[in-house]
Amino acid sequence: MQSILTPYIELKNVEVVYNRDVCALRDVNLQIARGEFVFLVGKTGAGKSTILKLLSREANVTTGDVLLEGNSISRIPRNKVHLHRRRLGIVPQDFALLPKKNIWENVGYAMRAVGATKREIRARAPEILDLVGIAHRADAFPNQLSGGEQQRVAIARALINDPPILLADEPTGNLDPEFSIEIMEVLERINQRGATVIVATHDMPVVERMRKRVVTMEKGRVISDVVPEPIVLETAVVDA
């Protein structure tokens, strides 16, 4: 049984070596609590995406371990990885939308791929599209949408399994600043509904504005882990 002290997600002494010359992560230790919103920031090649890949088991550790609720993700057998991924919502940087399907069909396609019936899709898809604020464009095709809207669809698709964890890799990487804020607001809304959200990004203005926990990485190492101070609103006392 999981102890209340057990972190929800934990990386323990993780090292990922792709080949002799490329070490993606070095001795990374990180703990994330259930329901947290965490930014992984750093330059390209710092190791942010590798952490997301370890969590989704697109990559595996060379040494160390990655735990989810105390259970090792690294040791999930290959034929069970898909079951693990159903607990995650994964938002890729490039949206990965199907250009010949409209938004409704894009979300429906993903749902059918995990075995949902048409009836289930009809019941659930509007709710998800509504949550990310794209329900009004359900009949549009990806090339008819702005970058921000496409990213919303990608987020909607990530939510089809109602995952407790959402992983987003550079979700604002291809967006204008105004859309970046919108996307972050969508992610925050999902976080407020209880999901643990982990976002890899190098979009510092957005990160600073969001005031969430920021894990900074450099050359495969965690160099800082900052939880922002809560904002204290000063109350002016006006003498009568």
Partner: peptide, 17 residues
């Protein structure tokens, strides 16, 4: 490959893919 990637992302089984 796009469809396959999406299936992998959302957790479709290998048999389904």
């Amino acid at each position: 490959r796009n469809e396959v990637r999406i299936m992998e992302l959302v957790g479709a089984s290998r048999a389904m893919i």
